[in-house]
Design a protein around this nucleic acid. Structure first.
Length: 333
DNA sequence: AATGGCCCCAACCGCCGGTCA
DNA sequence: ATGACCGGCGGTTGGGGCCAT
């Protein structure tokens, strides 16, 4: 027998959320934390499907979301990551902690696609995305060969790493899955501080919100709910005191800091000197075992470097099955 | 001011893998 | 073992806003 349905399909409200509904949802999450979405409609009285509640939270209400136009830097990163990962918006969003996958997807579909198409038409610039099916075979072939070579190296590194360290230390076990920015099921984030920020942010978001977050911040989650509910939030959206988004794991590693180092957050220009300085191939892949939760980001750098080396040459779409090897490998750490 | 077309984005839809009863 | 649900994801849609005519 299966579980009871999450909500009645009949009588479920659709369409835009009202401020009242937002407040209901936010106040419930403030008290119980995100997760157990199935219980949200019944416990809040919202005439919404649990899925709708979850989407509303993850795409709009959850803390740390930056709204408004994308910066040049963000734009470049999206273009770049899309070339690397394809339309895997959740994975791309994990590298842009302040943006939701939905936002990135929308921005890609409404702005960047057009922009890249224009550039492609207007010059010899060729977008490094999946639409560049007219890639020059030679360059693409070169690039794919290099990809395969490095996949082989990555596999070897993975085997080495697995044989060296199958039982990571407790600190390293608090991992954020690189492809999703999510905590693994075996760990929980430091919920208190994370959610403290959440409530403050929500208070800003919803005018008139006056409840004292601290008084309600009891973390009641069972492991089964928290492992899902804090995935994105704790993995990608906690904020530093300066308001800079950071992803903090239990060992206190600020992931976005490492990420900034990786990408050269200050200026990811087309030449990417920052990147090449911050990550050399020798130091990138699977070598820094003290930061296992950066696996996905570290592995990305290899692709990054290849792409940058290609310069303005066009690239075919990355074979996602090959990329997934990297991601799978990274998730093992 | 009215109208039509375009753009943007929040939200929905459908699928998938994992989980649970 | 089975089947239904949950949570996550990517694709798509449609309604509201903006702009040109």
């Amino acid at each position: 027998m299966g579980r009871p349905p999450c909500c009645d399909k009949v009588g479920v409200k659709k369409g835009p959320w009202t401020p009242e509904e937002d407040i209901l949802l936010v106040s419930y999450i403030q008290e119980h934390g995100p997760g157990n979405w199935r219980a949200v409609p019944t416990n809040t009285g919202l005439l919404r499907c649990s899925k709708s509640c979850r989407l509303r939270w993850t795409n709009y209400l959850r803390p740390g979301i930056r709204r408004g136009s994308f910066t040049d830097h963000e734009e470049k990163m999206i273009i770049h990551l899309q070339a690397l990962l394809g339309n895997r918006w959740a994975a791309i969003a994990s590298y842009l902690p302040q943006r939701t996958d939905n936002d990135i997807k929308n921005y890609w579909n409404t702005h960047l696609k057009k922009k890249l198409r224009k550039l492609q038409e207007g010059s010899d610039y060729h977008p490094r995305n999946g639409s560049s099916d007219n890639s020059e075979p030679i360059l693409r072939g070169q690039w794919e060969r290099r990809l395969q070579t490095d996949i082989h190296m990555a596999r070897q590194a993975l085997f080495d790493a697995l044989s060296l360290d199958k039982n990571p230390t407790p600190s390293s076990s608090s991992e954020v899955k690189p492809s999703t920015g999510c905590y693994s099921s075996t760990t929980k984030p430091a919920q208190g501080s994370t959610y403290a920020y959440s409530t403050d942010n929500i208070a800003k978001l919803l005018e008139g919100w006056t409840k004292d977050p601290a008084s309600k911040r009891e973390q009641k989650h069972t492991q089964s709910t928290s492992q899902h509910s804090f995935k994105r939030m704790a993995g990608t959206e906690s904020m530093s005191s300066e308001g800079t988004p950071t992803a903090v794991n239990n060992s206190g590693i600020e992931l976005s800091g490492a990420f900034e180092e990786l990408f050269g957050m200050e200026s990811l220009d087309s030449t990417n000197s920052d990147l090449s300085q911050s990550m050399s191939p020798e130091t990138s892949i699977f070598q820094d075992e003290s930061k296992p939760d950066l696996g996905g980001q570290v592995q990305l750098s290899t692709f990054e470097e290849w792409l940058f080396e290609e310069g303005s040459t066009q690239l075919g779409k990355v074979d996602l099955s090959e990329i997934s090897l990297y991601e799978n490998a990274a998730e093992l750490f």
